[in-house]
């Protein structure tokens, strides 16, 4: 199971706890949208490489 965690803003402590549980024993990747110029091409590549994407607030 390959899981991708995407962040629209800096993750809260709660979000970090949930991500830690969701990522446990899985092939986990992440992507930060909370930057001036996100590399959307890279994000799409990562989404299509993952089995599941979670995009946090």
């Amino acid at each position: 199971m390959k899981i991708l965690q995407v962040y629209r803003s800096a993750p809260s402590e709660e979000t970090k706890t949930l991500v830690e549980i969701l990522n446990r024993d899985r092939d986990a990747d992440s992507f930060d949208l909370n930057v001036d110029a996100p590399d959307y091409d890279q994000l799409v590549e990562k989404i299509f490489a993952a089995d599941q994407t979670v995009c946090w607030w």
């Binding site: 706890t17 949930l18 549980i21 969701l22 599941q52 979670v54 995009c55 946090w56 607030w57």
Partner: peptide, 12 residues
């Protein structure tokens, strides 16, 4: 968190 490991989709 444990329950959501079984989820197909998680939507914040």
């Amino acid at each position: 968190g444990e329950a959501m490991r079984e989820a197909d989709y998680i939507i914040p």
